[in-house]
Amino acid sequence: MVHGLKGWMMAAPATALVVLCLVLPVSATIAATFYAGGGPFDLYAAFLSSGFRRTVLWRTLEISLITTVLSLVIGFLTAYVVSRAPPRWRSALIILAVFPLLTGVVVRSFAWLIILGRNGIMNNLLVWIGVDGAPFTMVYTQGSVIVAMVYLFVPLMILTIVGVLENIPDDVIEAAQSLGATPVQTFRQVIFPLAVPGLIVGSVLVFTGSFTSFATPQLLGGDQQMMMGTFLYQRAMVAFDWDGAVTVSAIMVAVTLAVVIGMTRIAKRLNPMTT
């Protein structure tokens, strides 16, 4: 008990901060959705009855899902190469993936504005080589948001999956080879099944990251491609519609928690290393 008390005392300041400044405010925001409207679910009903808001929610889900799938495929193949590269190359490749990750979201989204913008590099290039119809409108489209999002999340996916692949013991792979499995068979029957839980974890990170993103849809989607994050900002700080803002917030929290909890549960069940 004395030990328990000591532990509590050491954890107390951080615990207090999280409870007072995170749990309570966020709970208050979510609670507000139930009493701010007339009836407890009026705000949600209002949200879902608006065609524009439904579109924003649907678009956000769609962009997040496409981003996740693309990042997963690109990240997995690249991570596989990285994990199998000779040691010196491997650390260089890992550093090259960490660098963009540590460079801020704003900088990395801005880079795509330079590339895809009306006066951007891509259009300059197309005009210069004389492509008909150039310059094109590439920015403020769903495609531009997805490209920038994939760009944002591929490094995260690479690093997550490299970690997972490196956790697969070498001798398990050697065992498969010694039992006559070809490289392709080894990959399909041993490496891939053992990587699945990690792929799920990476996908959850990317999906929730995309679903709640702000800077990228703001810079590359604008008002035309509004997503949940930009819509929340617009409701709260431009339209001063706080009823709308709390509703958007609650939906974001609900979707994020549902995805995280559901998928980690599945990943855990699929992970033979922990049983």
């Binding site: 013991p169 001798d171 398990v172 065992a175 010694s178 041993v190 053992l194 033979p272």
Partner: peptide
Amino acid sequence: GLVFQNYALFPH
């Protein structure tokens, strides 16, 4: 036929 030090069984 190889028997490994850490057995190297396929965990899945």
